[in-house]
Amino acid sequence: MSGLTGIVPILLTPFREDFSIDYASLRRELDHTLSAGVHGVGIAIGSEVFKLTPEERRELLRAVVDQVEGRVPVVMNVSAPGSEVACQLAREAAEAGAGRLMVWPPDFFPASADAVVDHLARIADAAGLPIILQDVPQAPIPPGLALRIADAVPLVDTIKVETQPTVLQVQAMVEAVGDRLTVLGGAGGGTLVEEHRRGARGTMPFASQSADFMAAWDALERGDAAAAEEVLARRILPVSRLGFQGRDLFYHVHKALLRRRCLFRTTLVRPPTDAPDAVTQGEIDRLLAHLSPAPAPKKETA
């Protein structure tokens, strides 16, 4: 099995007050993420990639690739409803230095299994990079189709499972694909322990919690599920519980975590978005105070 394994966080995109990309904050986020010992980094939906212009996508990817300097794979999501658009995005990602692509099937209109296989084959031919399939609610990939894709498109070597219920879907996928595809979890990583127990070989969480996920992963890999469960219960699940309450609140929560750690200057999310109301903002503030207590004030010396 040659697919991607381990903890591969998705970077959040920081914005200045005018909603341009804040590259200084991005560098701090990436340094912090790499220092946790992650196995890769990604630019995808968690990065608000669908809100970036084509030029911004290329510039963001180049900035990440330049800073990573080959230390870990850089994954770029090139999903698009049309094959020609996806192929262009794939070629641009390859030219900018991406090490892998991530793609979900066309979702604007339902596509047949034959059309999905053809779509992915075209993307593989366009870029020549390994591909992570993304099994998402808007374009689910049943285990049988995943196996067919793996047979038809050798560059597809990994699948990220995000359709609900993720634990059962991971189990079904592992049982179906065997050693043909590496199975990763997704959907925020809140069921990492259960997915690992059923054969998942990693997950792709938000970069704001890279160190926490690495602690949980290392515990799982050494056979200490209880320690991993403790990390999830204390550090990870409270964030998921709040962030996934509705719409795109998770962006606001995870950016608030990064700002709390002095990595981001703002918590801005590109429109359209719904800013947290006063009650929700209070919940975010209390969560941050619990996860990252403010440093004690320095005592004055005489």
Rank of each mutant, 00 (worst) to 15 (best):
T13M: 07
G82V: 11
V85K: 12
I21K: 06
G128C: 08
A146F: 13
V161A: 05
I123S: 11
L155K: 14
V161W: 10
L120K: 09
G70L: 02
I284V: 12
G37Q: 00
L258E: 04
L11P: 01
P81T: 05
R260I: 02
G243A: 09
G70P: 04
Q169Y: 12
C87V: 03
R260Y: 06
L12A: 13
M76L: 07
W104M: 15
V136Y: 12
A219R: 00
A233V: 06
G42N: 03
D66A: 14
A146I: 10
V64K: 03
D22T: 09
Q88V: 14
V64F: 00
W104P: 11
P9H: 01
V193W: 02
T166C: 11
R27W: 06
D31I: 05
A176K: 14
A219T: 01
L133I: 06
I149N: 08
E92H: 12
L133H: 12
D277P: 07
F19R: 11
A296M: 11
E48I: 01
A146P: 09
R16V: 07
A219M: 00
L52T: 04
R62P: 03
L184C: 09
E59I: 10
G223C: 03
P73Q: 00
F244P: 03
T53M: 03
A93F: 09
P130E: 08
A152G: 04
R222Y: 01
T53R: 07
